[in-house]
């Protein structure tokens, strides 16, 4: 069909597509109860193994975010042996999260022991690990790590980033999309609206905040 992009408001959306987008988001982020409610209300059909994997991912996610990284690593190994074995970067990042937890708990000696036995072996593999280890070790130079110029390593943003990476790796292992359909849609919408706005008389660039406000 030959449709003028500026006439996007005329495009009809299939109800089932909308439901799939929403369910994709809920499953990706381990909203189990919401997913189940949504499925029963809409009458959609979903394979049971999705929900089972979601439950396991949820527990891993939870442990990692709450500062029990070693448990998260253990559960990930139970889920599938080779998820972390084949991903040195991710395993290193998870181990470094545990190191950060020890530092924040003021368990200096334990942190040093852990770094020496678990992080140090990475330094002989590649230089990038050496640089990262040095950054983490500098946290130890402060009674209160927040004073360290590398304090972002103990922040929630960094932790969320690592945990998101873990979640994506697990999803990829089970051939599930690592990005939600919602995320992709917003990305594509932003790009398309950006291109259109550069033409004469095009609509303004897409802003999710403005979009939600206008409804």
């Amino acid at each position: 069909m030959d449709v003028d992009p500026r006439q996007y408001e005329q495009i009809a959306i299939n109800e089932n597509d909308v439901n799939n987008i929403i369910l994709s988001y809920l499953i990706h982020n381990c909203y189990k109860e919401s997913s189940e409610s949504f499925i029963s209300c809409t009458g959609m059909k979903q394979p049971a193994d999705h929900l089972e994997n979601m439950e396991k991912r949820k527990r891993i996610f939870h442990h990692a975010l709450e500062g029990n990284v070693l448990k998260a690593i253990e559960l990930t190994g139970q889920l599938a042996q080779d998820i972390l074995e084949n991903n040195n970067d991710l395993l290193f990042d998870l181990l470094s999260l545990h190191f950060v937890d020890l530092v924040c708990s003021k368990k200096w000696t334990e942190a040093l022991e852990f770094a020496q036995t678990k992080l140090s072996p990475y330094s002989v593999k590649e230089q990038k690990y050496m640089d990262k280890i040095e950054g983490f070790m500098s946290l130890l130079a402060y009674e209160n790590p927040v004073e360290c110029p590398m304090f972002h390593l103990i922040g929630l943003d960094y932790r969320q980033q690592v945990v998101d990476s873990l979640n994506q790796t697990i999803l990829a292992h089970f051939n599930l999309p690592i990005h939600t359909a919602m995320e992709r849609l917003i990305q594509q919408t932003s790009v398309v609206r950006q291109c259109l706005s550069q033409e004469d008389g095009g609509p303004p660039p897409f802003s999710l905040k403005d979009f939600l406000k206008s409804r």
Binding site: S123, E134, S138, A141, E147, P149
Partner: peptide, 26 residues
């Protein structure tokens, strides 16, 4: 010793401090 004497230099000499702290592993 690092906390007492090295950490004041971290802002201006971060690379040096990081390497010295890395030495703790050895």
């Amino acid at each position: 010793y690092a906390r007492m004497h090295l950490s004041p230099f971290a802002t201006s000499h971060m690379t040096d401090i990081q390497k010295l702290m890395g030495c703790l592993l050895w």
